[in-house]
Design a protein around this nucleic acid. Sequence first.
DNA 1: TCAATGTCATACAGACTGTTCAGTAACTGT
DNA 2: ACAGTTACTGAACAGTCTGTATGACATTGA
Lengths: 198, 198
Amino acid sequence: MAEDRRTRRSRRALGAALVELVLERGFTALTVEDITERADVARATFYAHFRDKEDLFARVTADLLAELGERLAPAVADSAVGFTGKPVLEMLRHAREERDLYRIVLRGEGDGKPLRMFVDACARATAEEFRARAERNAVKPRIDPELLARVWVGEQLAVLRWWVEQDAPSLPAEEVVRMLLDLAMRGRYWASGFEPPA
Amino acid sequence: MAEDRRTRRSRRALGAALVELVLERGFTALTVEDITERADVARATFYAHFRDKEDLFARVTADLLAELGERLAPAVADSAVGFTGKPVLEMLRHAREERDLYRIVLRGEGDGKPLRMFVDACARATAEEFRARAERNAVKPRIDPELLARVWVGEQLAVLRWWVEQDAPSLPAEEVVRMLLDLAMRGRYWASGFEPPA
DNA sequence: TCAATGTCATACAGACTGTTCAGTAACTGT
DNA sequence: ACAGTTACTGAACAGTCTGTATGACATTGA
């Protein structure tokens, strides 16, 4: 007995309505009734599933993260050697499919709680990967992997934010990844147009 | 006829109360009455100054940005040549003084609106500086300055966020700046411990 | 088909919002 | 120090949203 179809229907509708409405009006401005109305569901039903709208947002985000995690797993395995850009590319693709949700999360809607869930999950995974990779290749990090992971994630998310907020059909994902890789390899100084330092 | 002392007193008290309370309970959880109570001010007075709590938060953030801008000006002038790290250092110092406010802004409290004010201001200024610098030194950026600025700011803010959230007396600001500079110059690959690529 | 379970409409108390207002206190410029 | 201006106070108001409870009804899965 998997999950009642009615339950699934309601939950999905509520989640979708939330995303739409947050994008339109912002999280705080929303009423539970706004959400149920858009989802075409009774208000009482909402409370049968979620404690409040924050709870709903948190679950939607958690689902997104779980999905992302699954999609990232093979890409991470593939880039065991070094910076291949495969995980980033996969994330960009995921973001293209779930664009609206990515937008509102990255904007910090909901007092930044979903965003923090997102950042923390990415940072944790990245730091772990950095450590493992350093060990595997027998190199000693010149900067604390924890901090390095934060920087790397911060940089990726900044780009991601920029990317999903573009209105015009923007740069293809592959192109964005190439830039990020260049930056990671050669540094910002090079990217600015200067010759690499001594 | 500057500004009435009572006005200044009330505004300041309300701003300070907001910061304290957001740090304790989060922005959404707050009531206007919570704020006025902490500030020891009548609720009616609040509405004499601000439309709602979002308005208050926005103004507090705007003031912070103005202050930061003033402090950054000389540092930016000093680093006209290249990446000296002076502006970042100055920002870290500012963040140390206004730690609580920085924390809540960077957390994305208030549906991320103050955070967006912050990010946009930094990104705009940085992009402009990049362009000017490239022109001054007659070099051609290898990556769109707009995007490069986003990345650079995203990276700085990730570090800043990490730094202001540390409980223990953390790394000195100068040390953090050194790391950021190394990263900017030599890239992440180097920081991970690998030798620079061909 | 039937028992279980989700959904619905409605109702409720309690809390918060944003506004108004008359009385009181504090401030500024002279 | 005074007078006129201006801000603060406390109280009251309707309107909105929340979270919970209820019994009737519809859909589901076995």
